[in-house]
Structure formats: structure tokens, C-alpha cells
Design a protein around this nucleic acid. Structure first.
Lengths: 213, 213
DNA sequence: CGCCTTCTTGATGAGCATCAAGATCAGTGG
DNA sequence: CCACTGATCTTGATGCTCATCAAGAAGGCG
């Protein structure tokens, strides 16, 4: 019983801490490529939903390398965490529009914080399975599938992020990413064109799935 | 205060879904090494807290390999997720005692589900940073530090899991794990002894941190 | 003792990081 | 219109690290 009430106390304290010390900020924000949504060290008082474009959330490792924890596309929520201040960075990948909701406002318009947290948790777990995969081409194949799924399963779509972003997301180097894309292209699994070879058309979904599943 | 109730509402809605079709189960469960807490496909109607021992939660990958998502030690909660059924497996690592709480019971005795979810999310993110690290010895060093932290930062403690568990947790092979432990031993960073070389004493915390930080 | 599991050590090869350089493209200004 | 510039992407060569295969060492237990 005492354990139970202790947990209830945690619940209260977490939220009060998160909300205190900052004015509730809500509204729409427009950002250009590379512009920052929040930085490590800032107070975490809001959560954000992508309205258009895409956002990358990343951490810096001990040796200064950037590791992208997740990309967020239209409709997805990010920025929720347990600590009082952010330990990560969020930036627009391209021209982007986000909605900002103060966590404290969840009482007025109850946003499903638990749902957001669980969705993010599930995504983080899925990413672990992806990243642990040894082969570079498998990671890239899985990434292409993930991006296709984000575009409603379209056969053709445009990557909003650079090869460098993809590399930092998959834990590879830019060169390995480029090589894997080349392999997928020469083996007729995908077709690449457009500015920076970011326009992707999936030619052989089965072949892609066989690699990335 | 109202924040609380909003979360309670969320709690209710999510939990009704999760709890339906299964009797609420609460209580204490004792398990021996390798015994199962839940399996993929089972309805997710409860969350669990480790009272003694340790639990491993893992997924099976497409090619049949086991990937351990997380270890849970005394006091930690696991089993919470957004899907209606589990997609992962939970097993006792050693002799273990867990507390089982039906999610539906959170209305009567409000467990901080959001807090549990956010803690798990933070852990998943930390693990991404660990696993993405290229070097095997760095991963093992970070793992040893994590285990030390779990034992209240003790200099000496016993690993409850096998080398095989560690390998599946770190995304390495058993051999690489053993080699890394050997390197840490021969470089006088740690000392190993006891059954299965699972008794660890940290001789050089700075050296360990330099590798694993 | 024999059998089993777990951990360690050795030899070899594959795959990726690294370093280096070339290719493509958008933007800029003569 | 073309040359210049910088960013991004691709390709090539080399070495290191880890997975793999194989076998030995160290308990635990009947």
C-alpha cells in the first residue's frame, strides 16, 4: 500500500516539476531546414506534433558524434520525456510546421500522454531491432521500408533527410549508406533519381522486404 | 490536480482495452531461472514489478535470433505497452519474485503508468546509444557500469545473467563478450571470479568510465 | 568418473570504417 | 550563358574489428 501511494506521489511530482517554471506555450511554429525546436538543457514543458515536413531528434554521444534517435513525420508527437529538462535535440529536417502543446494543458484538452509515451516506446524498441542488425544493406532496406510506410505505403516518395542523417540514424557512415543504396539500385530493388538521389521508387517490394524484414 | 485526473482518464481508456477479455490478476509470483512471465501473443493485461532477482525481456528477430530489449532489476516495472497483446517475451533470469498488478486496478490504486512508460522510454533511448557504439569492449564496459549502477553503485557485485544473455543484450556474440571481459581483466580494470566468472569487482572505475561513458 | 553447460581462446574471413578522390547539382555572379 | 563554389553523393583502396568455426578449460551434478 505504501508502495502504491509512493507511486501516486511520483505521478504528481513529475508533472508539477515538468510544468513549473515556464509559461505554457501553445501554437503553431514554422521552421526551415536545420532550425531547432528544442535543445538539450532547455526545460521540457511542451510536446510537439508534426503538421508538415519532418523532425529529427538526436543525442550527442560522449565522443561528439550525433546519433539520431528518431525521425518524426506528419501527425507524430515528440518531445515527451520524464526528465525536467531535455537531454536531446530536435531540429527540422526540411521546411516544417509543428504544433506545440504545453504539457500542463493536458488537463484542459486531455492529450493522451500515455499513448504518446507508449507509441514512442514501441518505436524505440522497433529501432533497437533494426539497429542491432549487423548488415548495412539490411539496415538501409529496413529504413526504406520505414519511410515508405510513413508515406502511406507509397511505392514512390522523396526522402526528406540527407545521407548523413540516414547514416547517423542507422549507425553507419555516409559511405556505407551510399554503397547500400547503390547495391539496392544495381540489383533493381529500388530506383533513385532527383535532387541528391532522394527520390525513391520501389521496384521490387518482395526483394526489399526479404532484406529488411 | 486536474492533471492527475486527465492522466487517470487516459489510464482508464487505455486500460479498458488492455484489460478486456481477461480476468484481472494481481499478486506475487515466484519463478525459477528461465521461467516465463509472459509470451508473445498473450493478452497484455498486467504490469509487473521485480521484487527480487531479475527479468529479461526480449524479442525474436526475423531470422530467429533473440534480442534482449532490457533487463529489469529490483523495483523496476515492465510489461507495459500500447498493443493489446504482447509482442515480446519476459523470463526470469534467476530465482525471481515479481509483483503483478492488473492494469485495470490503476483506477482504484493509481499506479503511475505514464511514469513507468517514460522510464522505459528513457531506458530504451539510453540503450540505443549503447548499442550503436561500434566497439565491443566499449559496449561491455558500459554494460558493467550499468550493472554496477543497478547494484547501488557497488564496486563488487554478481552478474545474474549468462554471457549469452549479455551477448544478446549488446548485439554481440558470446565469444566477443568473453574476449572483452578478458581484456578488461588483463588490463586490470575489473577482477572476475566465482561461478562462471560472474562475480565482478571493479578495480579501476575511471578506466571503465573512459571506455563505457 | 562421465556428461553437460558455460566460459574461454585460437585461426580465419567478411564487412564496415576510414582515408582519399571523383561526380553531380544548386546557387551565384560575371 | 558559362564558370566558380560549396554541399552532397558516390566510388575506390586499405586495414581493423568482429562473426564464425573449432576446440579446449572449468565447474556442477548424477
Amino acid at each position: 500500500m505504501t508502495t502504491m501511494s509512493a507511486i501516486a506521489d511520483n505521478c504528481l511530482s513529475t508533472l508539477n516539476v515538468a510544468a513549473k517554471g515556464r509559461q505554457s506555450v501553445s501554437g503553431i511554429i514554422r521552421l526551415g531546414p536545420g532550425e531547432c525546436v528544442y535543445q538539450a538543457g532547455e526545460r521540457a514543458a511542451s510536446i510537439y506534433q508534426v503538421q508538415a515536413g519532418a523532425v529529427r531528434v538526436y543525442c550527442l554521444t560522449h565522443n561528439g558524434h550525433r546519433h539520431i534517435l528518431s525521425f518524426y513525420g506528419v501527425g507524430e508527437w515528440f518531445g515527451l520525456q520524464d526528465a525536467e529538462t531535455h537531454e536531446d535535440f530536435a531540429e527540422a529536417v526540411c521546411d516544417t510546421q509543428i504544433r506545440c502543446a504545453a504539457v500542463a494543458s493536458c488537463m484542459a484538452a486531455p492529450i493522451d500522454l500515455l499513448g504518446v509515451a507508449l507509441t514512442n516506446l514501441a518505436a524505440a524498441r522497433a529501432r533497437q531491432l533494426l539497429v542491432i542488425r549487423p548488415s548495412a544493406i539490411e539496415r538501409v532496406a529496413a529504413f526504406v521500408q520505414e519511410m515508405a510506410a510513413r508515406n502511406s505505403g507509397a511505392r514512390e516518395f522523396e526522402l526528406m533527410m540527407s545521407r548523413s542523417d540516414i547514416a547517423d540514424y542507422l549507425g553507419l557512415t555516409v559511405e556505407s549508406v551510399a554503397r547500400s543504396f547503390t547495391k539496392l539500385r544495381t540489383s533493381r530493388v529500388i530506383h533513385l533519381q532527383g535532387r541528391g538521389q532522394r527520390q525513391v521508387r520501389i521496384l521490387n517490394p518482395q526483394g526489399l522486404a526479404a532484406l529488411g524484414a
